[in-house]
Amino acid sequence: MANNSSHITDYKVLTRVLLVLMFCTFLTISITSYNLAAFTVTIALLIAGFKSFLVLSYFMHLKYESLLLRILVSIVFVLFALIVLITFIDYSYR
């Protein structure tokens, strides 16, 4: 049942994604100079999450893969979120 079809991404697209990633890195560093209190880590994680999304989608070709594979990878992130959430059931009420 092998699916050997592959997608070749245009260099222009990859370059744009690279630029966005570099901008996000710059943003991550820049916001450390502002005092965002409890949101500092949240915002850093949101930017990192967005960067991961871009890398997975374009550099790792997930955008062009089958729906099944995209669902499977999405489940991984849902699982990760659940594990963090459940751990904080302990930390929030301890």
């Binding site: 699982l79 059931i89 302990d90 301890r94």
Partner: peptide, 17 residues
């Protein structure tokens, strides 16, 4: 994946957890 805490009931974990 979500049941690991049952190894830790006596560890000092919160009651809710």
């Amino acid at each position: 994946f979500l049941v690991w805490g049952h190894h830790m009931y006596t560890s000092g974990m919160s009651n809710q957890a």
